[in-house]
Design a protein around this nucleic acid. Structure first.
Length: 280
DNA sequence: AAAGTGCCCAACCGCCCTGGG
DNA sequence: CCCCAGGGCGGTTGGGCACTT
């Protein structure tokens, strides 16, 4: 028996939103705030699924949303973050002010993937990208075999090679950290990706030495998620202990770009990335 | 001008996680 | 400890538009 749908789809409108619906939704949220998405449509007088309302708000109506015209700087950052994070669109979006995960995901799939392919760079298939392992915040339940079967399948399919001892209190947990890879200090901001220099394939890159601090160009190697295995002990206070997705980045004190002006400082993205390198 | 083709992106779908009762 | 509703995420779909033939 499958999971019950989030809402009864009978009688609900689907497809593109009308301006009237947008207005209703925006007005309601302005008045009552976000949340309670399931009951929101009814209260707001919308014939929409709650999830649909949330999506519309998050991706379109929310104040501060920037639409279209993704700048080369932003593309640059997306590519770098993707090399770090894989398809964690919400995390990537969190570092790009005004951008939504959906937009970034679309842009990646329609534009950046092509550019990278044209440049001879083959980002690993999404499924091969390990996710940052999640440390169970609280050993909630040692999932019973039957109930966890589906989850395990999903996890394995995403190649999440995480060995987290959930039940026992092991002092040691194996996690995999993303290794920061500098794609290039300047993804050609004014030209195509064709000029990218692709370093040896599969270079597992403990060679962060190729970065020339004074110079712009470094080796380009799109090597998503080279795995870095390490043992976590009590003294480890790095970002490796992924409390959750957001802790994965937030835990490393990386300043959110929301606080920065992405257009004010040409080198801002480089700086941010350098901070990643240092923090990781 | 009409038909065919490809691309883009808003929206949907299904699954998972979390927290409260 | 278990169940369930709410919320969030990543992958996929399909309508509409632009471009080509």
């Amino acid at each position: 028996m499958g999971r019950s749908p989030c809402c009864s789809k009978v009688g609900l409108k689907r497809g593109p939103w009308s301006t009237e619906e947008d207005t209703l939704l925006a007005n309601y949220i302005q008045e009552h705030g976000e949340g309670h998405w399931r009951s929101l449509p009814q209260k707001a007088g919308l014939l929409r699924c709650g999830k649909s309302c949330r999506l519309r708000w998050m991706n379109y109506l929310r104040p501060g949303i920037k639409r279209g015209n993704i700048s080369p700087d932003e593309e640059d950052l997306i590519i770098r973050l993707h090399s770090l994070l894989g398809n964690r669109w919400s995390l990537i979006a969190g570092r790009l002010p005004g951008r939504t995960d959906n937009e970034i995901k679309n842009h990646w799939n329609t534009h950046l993937l092509k550019k990278l392919n044209n440049a001879g760079i083959q980002p690993k298939p999404h499924k091969d990208l390990p996710k940052p392992p999640k440390q169970p915040k609280k050993p909630k339940k040692s999932t019973p075999p039957a109930a966890s079967a589906k989850k395990k399948k999903k996890i394995q399919s995403s190649a999440e090679e995480v060995e987290v001892e959930e039940a026992a209190p092991p002092p040691k947990t194996t996690v995999y950290l993303p290794k920061p890879i500098r794609v290039s200090s300047v993804f050609p901001r004014n030209n195509s990706y064709d000029s990218l220099i692709v370093s040896g394939s599969g270079s597992s890159s403990s060679e962060g030495d190729n970065v020339d601090k004074d110079n712009a160009i470094v080796e380009v190697s799109y090597v998503p998620w080279p795995l870095l295995e390490l043992d976590v002990d009590q003294n480890y206070n790095g970002i490796g202990v992924y409390g959750d997705d957001h802790d994965f980045l937030n835990g490393c004190d990386l300043p959110l770009i929301h606080h920065l002006d992405p257009y004010g400082d040409e080198n801002m993205l480089d700086k941010v990335y350098d901070e990643y390198l240092q923090l990781l």
